[in-house]
Design a binder for these strands. Sequence first.
DNA 1: ACCTGAACACCGTTCAAGT
DNA 2: ACCTGAACACCGTTCAAGT
Lengths: 214, 214
Amino acid sequence: MRAALRVIDTEGDRALSMRRVAAELGVYPTAVQHHVNTKEQLLVAVSDAVLDEMVMPSPDVDWVEWLEVFSAQLRAVLHAHPNVVPVMAARLRVATGAFTLSEQLLAALAGAGFTGAALRGAYNSVIGFVFGWIFTELAAEPAADEDAWRQDLRSRLERVDPAEAPTLAVHVDDLRNRAFMMRWMSGQSNPLDDSFEFAVRVMVSGLQAQLDRQ
Amino acid sequence: MRAALRVIDTEGDRALSMRRVAAELGVYPTAVQHHVNTKEQLLVAVSDAVLDEMVMPSPDVDWVEWLEVFSAQLRAVLHAHPNVVPVMAARLRVATGAFTLSEQLLAALAGAGFTGAALRGAYNSVIGFVFGWIFTELAAEPAADEDAWRQDLRSRLERVDPAEAPTLAVHVDDLRNRAFMMRWMSGQSNPLDDSFEFAVRVMVSGLQAQLDRQ
DNA sequence: ACCTGAACACCGTTCAAGT
DNA sequence: ACCTGAACACCGTTCAAGT
């Protein structure tokens, strides 16, 4: 449903309702129900529509480059619809329609040399790490009125007690608003580009290490 | 709020409402509001309460073991409250209260040899990978009435077309209901233990590789 | 097949009032 | 400080009815 994606993109996932979508289409609330049965199905459809925008890497490249491109492309797609991400992250029933993404990722990993349980492990590592990392990056900010929280977090990071948190106290300038659990802005307005690239390197070289051990 | 966690644990996150919590406490709906202001704050409080159950690894062990124990402990805590996980995954404002988790993770990574931008990268890799992987594992199953979807997914995995998805067709027996995007059960009822252990090995050896390169 | 229109049970939140 | 009680605007969903 195009209209639903438009609402969620512009007004956030909290604003999405069957009735709001109906209004967007200039139609009665129950008319939406006729097309989509339930709100849950609408949310799944929106998530799937976003993932359909994913452009998969060429199967011809080296598996390392394949994974780097895959990760960057997925992140680009999810950053294009940040408000959909919390919805997508919460549901199992997403992207289970066609298996094209899974097939191509499996092909890349099988081409790298993974087989059997290691192929499953590598596949689940890549999906869980890349999706999961971006889910965490794009977690929803609190509603607009809560900048008391923002201010509180900022000021507590201004004066970290070296007795309580010695390591943090030393490195806080590198971490403030640039590290998970120490951010007051979500990845939408404050993307963590260099950390994502670091994480992808960790993942790729970790997979390489598993291959070497085989 | 203890009562809220009880409701969400036993009846799921969809069932949680201010009014339901009030009923659980035998009190008027508006009395709950007096303690917690807003539903958003209640959900954050519940998420934080779950994370407070986390038992951090001893700082004395080797950083590799530290990360393995950390990952396993975090997963145990989140599996103890699977219904809270989709709520936690969606919000930025979680675990920003005390910095004890961050401090201890930073200490372990600094002890391993990470500094500066690499420390930030390693920290964000671990948080994003471990939390994110478990978020993905524990995504919410569709409401009970939707086992039409379950049946459909199962049957499509019974007969994967080798022309359309050749790699998947070969490995489908290893992957059916045990791989992301090919599951009809969430990690709550269908934990992916061996894939998690594989993923942790990938992460740890990937971090090791970054250290070696420094 | 697609939409209207009314209705139901539920929701978060506000506000005035009590103790 | 803590709770009652009524009210408001909104919600997802059902059902009968129209074309």
